[in-house]
Write a protein that binds this DNA or RNA. Structure first.
Length: 222
DNA sequence: AGGTGATCATTA
DNA sequence: TAATGATCACCT
C-alpha cells in the first residue's frame, strides 16, 4: 500500500514520476501482474494507476485523493493523441435524489479537481506497451463549470419529474447520460411522473470524448 | 444492490 | 468510425 498524498505538490511529484513510463515498466516497479487484455478487467489500468499514486477513497462517492480533494482519471488515447473513450464520472442518482443539488452532489465534487493521466496504446497491442503520457491537473473554468452544472441539472430535472423515459445519451454538452450497470436487465428503484414506484436501468454521467479531446489538445500539445 | 474502476461491441 | 448501449471485475 502506498500512502495517500497529503499535498497537491506531492501528488504532482508522484504523477511526474510515471510520465513517459510504459505500463510494463510500471508493473515491474510495483511487482504487479498485467492482464492479457482488458476484455474481462476493464478497470484494471485505472485501478493500477490509483494504487501507484496512493488513491485512498476506495469506492466511496468522493474524490480519489480524499485529503486533497482530487479525482484521478485515466484517459485512453492513441499514439497520435486522439481520445478513444468517454470518461465515466459518477452514477446518476435516480432513487435517492432528495435534497441533492449541484453544489452538494458527488458529481460536482469529483469534477472540481481532476488529475488526468493520459495513457497511449495501440488497439490490439499488448497492454504492457501502453505508455503513460504527461499527467496534468485540471480545474474547470467558469464557463466549463457553468456548462457542467447545466448538463447535470437538465438530467436531474427529468429524474425529479419522473420523466425517466426522456433520459438519453444525446442530452448534455459536456456530460452525457448512459447505462451504468452489470447488464441491461439490472433495475434500480425510481418514481414515475405520477408518483408511482417504478424501476429503471441505472445510469451514469460520462464526459464526452470531444470535451476530453479539448483538454488533451490544450495540455499535451503546444 | 449499488458504488468504484472503466472498455467492449453493436448501431447508425 | 463515432456514438450509443451493453458489459466486466472488484468492493462494501
Amino acid at each position: 500500500m502506498i500512502l495517500p498524498p497529503t499535498t497537491i505538490k506531492e501528488l504532482k511529484e508522484r504523477a511526474q514520476q510515471i510520465a513517459g513510463v510504459t505500463i510494463g515498466e510500471l508493473a515491474n516497479r510495483h511487482q504487479a501482474n498485467i492482464p492479457d487484455d482488458l476484455k474481462r478487467q476493464k478497470g484494471w489500468q485505472g485501478q493500477f494507476i490509483e494504487s501507484c499514486l496512493g488513491a485512498d477513497a476506495g469506492n466511496l462517492s468522493e474524490p480519489d485523493f480524499s485529503k486533497i480533494g482530487v479525482e484521478l482519471k485515466t484517459l485512453p488515447i492513441d499514439f497520435s493523441g486522439r481520445v478513444v473513450e468517454s470518461t465515466y464520472i459518477s452514477v446518476v442518482n435516480i432513487s435517492n435524489h432528495q435534497g441533492v443539488t449541484w453544489d452538494n452532489c458527488a458529481t460536482k465534487h469529483k469534477l472540481e479537481h481532476i488529475l488526468w493521466v493520459p495513457i497511449a496504446r495501440n488497439k490490439n497491442e499488448a497492454l504492457e506497451n501502453s505508455r503513460i503520457a504527461t499527467p496534468f491537473l485540471w480545474q474547470p473554468s467558469e464557463m466549463e463549470a457553468n456548462q457542467l452544472k447545466q448538463d447535470w441539472e437538465e438530467v436531474m430535472d427529468l429524474v425529479v419529474l419522473g420523466h425517466l423515459g426522456q433520459l438519453n445519451a444525446r442530452m448534455g454538452e459536456i456530460l452525457q447520460v448512459r447505462p451504468k450497470a452489470a447488464n441491461s436487465r439490472v433495475l434500480t428503484d425510481a418514481t414515475d411522473s405520477e408518483g408511482n414506484h417504478s424501476q429503471t436501468l441505472p445510469r451514469g454521467f460520462y464526459m464526452r470524448p470531444q470535451f476530453t479531446q479539448g483538454l488533451i489538445d490544450r495540455y499535451l500539445k503546444r
